[in-house]
Write a protein that binds this DNA or RNA. Structure first.
Lengths: 364, 364
DNA sequence: CTGAAAGCGCTAACAT
DNA sequence: ATGTTAGCGCTTTCAG
């Protein structure tokens, strides 16, 4: 009644277990009639195929790719770009027979865990087991970076699990997939400058994981932890636009963009253009402008970044920079493949492309 | 140089492997000094903890919960409700030390696989290994249903992997998490009827996985495969609204709602209200109405379903029915727990709540 | 409280 | 082409 094992099948087919194994894996020479006999015996016994646990222990491979979510951005699932990248990654890996295991980020270094109560009861049993430290996986993919000091990353490196970094800070020894976002913002800056904008505000991704949001003062601007944010601001300046105000959001979500837009557009010296570091934020800014009765692009130009589909704005087409999300997923897939084959994958950087929509025009 | 094993740690600490095992698992009596000695030896050797592969084979448990995506709806990741449910599920399971493995749906019965070429080369090795059939997992969760005849489901049942069904059709022997959506739509219907609407159109989720979209004629209406769609339409009628036109979409996405809205609002006998089967679709309808110069709710009332956050509409608050997404995730978590403990989980159905917003009003 | 021994189910050398 | 033999690393009886 218990699940049959390969040994049962082998016995029933009158062959050895190793032969039976070959019948399933195809990893070795086997006579066609023999193979069929084994398969028939398996069908007879209702054998569902080799138990993955046994196979994994023996081969030392789990066939699992862990994906560390929410390193920097909180609820990755809510962020369209993260979701789309993940989507691409899952399909790419599935074709290699690899599964994606979601690893929700543990408490990182940014927010220290709550103080431990003095325990009078049980011995110090592992309170919350951390998947990054305990789950089986052959490779880990870090979506959207994290602090190298993160608990999860330390655990992974102790376990010798190779890590592939997507848009994260360069970490020694990790292959990285990134985009040329500095150039993308330089193009956006040049576009706005050529239109004649001089009073430009920026809405940026989080500077760190502190979940701060609001206009960043000089002090805060000196504390930008995340390369991606700094790089994008620098790109903008390279393009000829030095933002007069910088608004930092806590998450890359439309709501946050609305908030940022309302603040920036209600203050004195209203900007003639707002550069957002993501399409979601830009969409929020457009919505905020509309609610304040401003015309886009007549009264305000808005730019985004990412090139995701934004049905929310109706006919309005966001001026943005398109990054190749699907290709990024595929690139990660190839890196995983290389890693599993024992070779060192090479980091890649993809180019991005300016796409001019209907949200930018000369200032009035 | 190779990774140390538990045996190495035990030897170094001067204890037996079984004792060393206890030091890590805490699953048995062990003297505190002994435990510390083992842990010290582990730290010394840079041992990262018990190898999950060994543990899994021995205990027969992988600690992995497979989540079958896209059963019915294609790219689940793009659908806000699926994403939010998944989000809740991941956090709930993480607290139990369980990981979520994403299982992209294989080719289901709806779309038969492409015809096999006559092979003259290699023996019939498994072309594309299907994760549902090969990956290690203790339980599978079916998000948004599927056909019981699906390849993946068959594979899971052959492997004796218990399945928990979220919003799927009842499948014999599977525990199910669902919501009282019939009642929700009855409430929506009653609300619209009480406002005086009689010419109401409906925008529904896909009838099956054929990815058809457009106005459903009588014949098509007789082919609704998915319980959820039928049940929701029935609920609406119970509430006193019999839709004059039914538009079926291929995906529950804003774009599709826009498409549906444009079609329904451009035809003759324009409806005074449109009932959408999801908030994403309703948002699209609102956008379409605006683009056609119609006022919501003045010229058109619109209702959604799900109660997800929709920042896209600005100040507009959708009249909708709120379903407890987080609670659904938690319920699945509890079921998984029960299943792993060897008991039969009980199916649950959650109540939903009508939330009247600013998108419904009496017809002009 | 600790140790010895067995074996989870499979695959990979090696021998035939 | 097939069989024999050895473990992969761990947990779990069962004795002591």
């Amino acid at each position: 009644m218990a699940r049959p094992t390969l040994a049962d099948v082998a016995r029933s087919a009158g062959v050895s277990v190793s032969t039976a194994s070959l019948a399933f894996s195809g990893a070795g020479p086997i006579a066609e009639p023999t193979r069929e006999r084994v398969l028939a015996a398996a069908a007879e016994l209702d054998y569902a195929g080799p138990n993955p646990l046994g196979r994994q222990l023996r081969s030392g491979r789990s066939g699992i790719v862990g994906v560390l979510l929410g390193g920097v951005l909180g609820r990755s699932f809510r962020e369209p770009v993260a979701v789309q990248t993940l989507d691409g990654l899952v399909s790419t890996l599935a074709e290699l027979g690899l599964g994606v295991l979601l690893l929700p980020a543990g408490r990182g270094t940014g927010a220290p865990p709550p103080p431990t109560e003095t325990r009078t009861d049980a011995p110090a049993a592992a309170a919350v087991p951390n998947l990054a430290a305990t789950a089986a996986m052959d490779v880990a993919v870090l979506l959207w970076g994290a602090n190298p000091a993160d608990e999860d990353l330390i655990a992974l490196s102790r376990r010798d699990v190779p890590v592939i970094n997507v848009e994260g800070p360069a970490i020694a020894g990790n292959a990285t997939v990134s985009i040329n976002d500095r150039d993308g913002f330089a193009q956006l800056g040049a576009h706005l400058a050529s239109l004649g904008h001089t009073r430009v505000a920026a809405v940026t991704l989080p500077f760190d994981r502190s979940r701060t949001s609001g206009i960043a003062d000089a002090e805060r601007l000196g504390q930008i932890k995340l390369d991606i944010v700094r790089r994008r601001l620098e790109g903008l300046r390279e393009g000829g636009v030095d933002p007069v105000t910088v608004y930092e959001v806590a998450y890359s979500q439309v709501e946050q963009g609305v908030e940022a837009g309302k603040t920036l557009l209600s203050g004195p010296d209203r900007p003639t253009a707002i550069v957002a570091q993501s399409d979601a934020l830009a969409a929020g800014v457009v919505i905020a402008a509309r609610e304040l009765g401003l015309d886009v692009p007549g009264d305000l130009s808005v730019t985004g970044f990412d090139g995701i589909d934004l049905p929310w704005l109706g006919e309005t087409v966001l001026t943005t920079v398109v990054q190749p999300l699907a290709e990024k997923g595929a690139a990660v897939g190839r890196m995983v493949e290389a890693l599993l084959a024992g070779s060192e994958p090479e980091s890649v950087t993809f180019d991005v492309e300016l796409r001019i929509g209907t949200t930018t025009a000369p200032p009035r």
